[in-house]
Every structure is written in structure tokens, then in C-alpha cells.
């Protein structure tokens, strides 16, 4: 188990402002946050590359804050994998063993086989693809059997296809070795797929720690909601609340949501764009919230389209290209948007 208490550190343009965290053995823990939040700095402090200005780090109950990196038994994989360019793949993988005075070629070969890089052992890092480099880096770090594996943005240098493979590989490694993994990323999808728990980090602080789904469905505040891809965050005031069914007055209209907020409270209503439906005729459905508005923006988003509708307040909706075609969507078209009261998360 890793426990971090009151960690502070100023370094160049980054700062950690009092980090408290606990990560359990065997857990896949993702630290999710925008660029510049201080995520990599936090990992480097755990690994011992920097000393904190204040605060402590405990691994399995032992205070390691003053220990040099080589005595912490922590595996660290940087974003660019940091393979040693002057050593071939075999020498890279066995580096950790050599530093411990162990020479065991068969362990290197078994590890290479597990990660499907046996055919690369004689090659030099600069001749490998990104995915290959990453597997070499993982082999190198797993061979020292670390207590915890720290991954710094492991996918960001890979193309989308390789990212898929890598995600599966990381899942496999984690489930087979029951290794504690702390994985840093700014990508929510990656976090959601891999994480047991997620810590959201912003401006040098941990702002929410929760099970993966909870962070997505129930972000603690509007900034987290924004970052987690909740594109519609509407500010308003609670006007009534009867048994959870809450009315929230926005500037121009009123929406209904399910929450425990008290009347008079200023709140943010979070609404994911995939939960907003668009129709061209007024609909009768269980959706309590239905508003008319004009399409003011249509933007392709991979397989989907993001449609922005102005109905007194701005609402983004994701729809498939097929349905856009069927609805005859175009800029300026009058449409009705609707969403269920249960789809609105109030913070």
C-alpha cells in the first residue's frame, strides 16, 4: 500500500499543493487531470527523483520520503519510455538485474516472450516502433519485480490502434501480476477503461477520488464535470424540491433534475451530450425536459456529430451521422431537444 500525506513541492512552473492519497495493493489507480496539473511531478516524487518540500510518502508502512530511488523498488515508465539508446534491447531489459549483480539470461528471455518481443532482443531502441519500445520498457521494469508500477502517460506517444493493444496489455499485466499500478493520464476514456479508482488532479491538488464510474457520473463540481467531458454545465438556482424531483431555474427557463439540493441553492446542472436527444417534432416521452431551439453549430466528432442548439441556453448533443441525415439537420433548423430528469447530475 502507498500512503501519501500532505505532499508539497514547487518545481519550475509546476506545484503540488498538499497531496493526500492512499492506493491499495493490487489496485489499478489512475491519476487523471489536464496538462500542467502536476501529475508527472507527483509520480516523480513517489519514485524519488525529487524530494518534496514537505510531506511524507509511505510504502507498505515504511516512510520512504528520504530514500534514494534505487532503494524504493518502484518501477517507472516515462511517456517516451526512456530506453537506453546505447544498449540493445536485451541489455536494456536486463539493466535492473545487472545493477543488482544478477546475471540470468533465461529470466530475460521468459519476460521477452511474455511481452512478445523475443525477436527484438538484438535490436537497438532507436530502430523500434513506439509500441515495441513500450513493451521493452515494460519488460525492463517488470523484471525487477517492483512493489508498484508508475506509468506516466503511457499511451500518449502511440497511434490509436497501438493504444488499444497497449490497454489490453496493461490490463493483462495487471490482472496476472496483481501489481499495484499508478497510471497518470489526461485521457478520460483511457482512465475509465483501466482504472479501479480514479483521482482527479487539477492545479496541483487532488480534487476527487472515487471509483471509475462515479467520477464520470457524479463529478464533484463543475470544473471536474467539464474536464470529464460533461459538455453541458448549466448554472441555476433551485426553486423547488419534492422528494428528489428538483426544479432548477436557469436564466431563461426551468429544468427538472433529480437531486437532494435545497431550495434557493445555487447549483450546476451537468448533462452529458450523449444523453440529449434531438427531434424535429415536439415529442411526448418520459423526458421531462424538452426545449425548442435553433441549431447553431454542427461539428464532426469521429463517428458522431456534435450539434449545438440554442434554446435560450446552449446545449450540446451527440448524434450519429445517420440520424442527422434522417432529421435533415442543418444550421438554423428549428429542433426540439430533450433529456430525462435522471440524466441531469446536480452539483
Amino acid at each position: 500500500m502507498i500512503r501519501i500525506e500532505g505532499l508539497h513541492r514547487n518545481w519550475k512552473e509546476f506545484a503540488l499543493k498538499g497531496i493526500d492519497l492512499e492506493v491499495q495493493d493490487g489496485e489499478y489507480f489512475v491519476i487523471l487531470g489536464p496538462t500542467g496539473a502536476g501529475k508527472t511531478l507527483l509520480l516523480e516524487l513517489i519514485a524519488g527523483f525529487h524530494a518534496p518540500d514537505s510531506g511524507d510518502i509511505f510504502i507498505n508502512g515504511k516512510n520512504v520520503t528520504r530514500l534514494p530511488p534505487e532503494k524504493r523498488n518502484i518501477g517507472f515508465v516515462y511517456q517516451d519510455y526512456s530506453l537506453f539508446p546505447h544498449l540493445d534491447v536485451r541489455k536494456n531489459i536486463e539493466f535492473g538485474l545487472r545493477m543488482r549483480g544478477i546475471s540470468d539470461g533465461s529470466r530475460v528471455e521468459r519476460m521477452a516472450e511474455n511481452l512478445n518481443i523475443s525477436h527484438l532482443l538484438h535490436r537497438y531502441p532507436l530502430t523500434l516502433s513506439g509500441g515495441e519500445q513500450q513493451r521493452v520498457a515494460l519488460a525492463r521494469v517488470l523484471l525487477i519485480e517492483p512493489d508498484v508500477l508508475l506509468l506516466d502517460e503511457p499511451m500518449s506517444a502511440l497511434d490509436p490502434g497501438t493504444q488499444d493493444t497497449t490497454r489490453r496489455l496493461l490490463k493483462k499485466i495487471h490482472s496476472m501480476s496483481e501489481l499495484m499500478v499508478i497510471h497518470v493520464t489526461h485521457n478520460q476514456t483511457e482512465a475509465q477503461i483501466l482504472a479501479d479508482r480514479i483521482a482527479v488532479m487539477m492545479d496541483g491538488r487532488i480534487v476527487q477520488v472515487a471509483a471509475a464510474n462515479e467520477v464520470f457520473d457524479r463529478p464533484l463540481n463543475d470544473r471536474i464535470a467539464h474536464f470529464m467531458g460533461v459538455e453541458n454545465v448549466l448554472k441555476g438556482t433551485v426553486t423547488s424540491n419534492s422528494e428528489g424531483l428538483t426544479s432548477i431555474a436557469l436564466d431563461s427557463c426551468e429544468i427538472e433534475a433529480v437531486s437532494g439540493c435545497a431550495v434557493g441553492e445555487t447549483v450546476h446542472a451537468c448533462l452529458r451530450p450523449e444523453n440529449v436527444t434531438i427531434s424535429v417534432v415536439p415529442v411526448k416521452s418520459s423526458a421531462r425536459n424538452a426545449f425548442e431551439g435553433d441549431v447553431i453549430e454542427i461539428e464532426p466528432m469521429g463517428a458522431l456529430l456534435r450539434v449545438k442548439v440554442d434554446c435560450g441556453f446552449m446545449v450540446n448533443s451527440f448524434i450519429t451521422k445517420q440520424s442527422a441525415l434522417e432529421l435533415g439537420l442543418e444550421l438554423g433548423k428549428r429542433v426540439t431537444i430533450s433529456f430525462k430528469a435522471t440524466a441531469v447530475h446536480v452539483v
Partner: peptide, 10 residues
């Protein structure tokens, strides 16, 4: 840094 965390003293 990587060399250090792989077990190499400075």
C-alpha cells in the same frame, strides 16, 4: 532517473 529507479545508485 530511469536507471536510478531500476536499481542503479547514482
Amino acid at each position: 532517473n530511469t536507471a536510478r529507479s531500476l536499481g542503479a545508485p547514482m
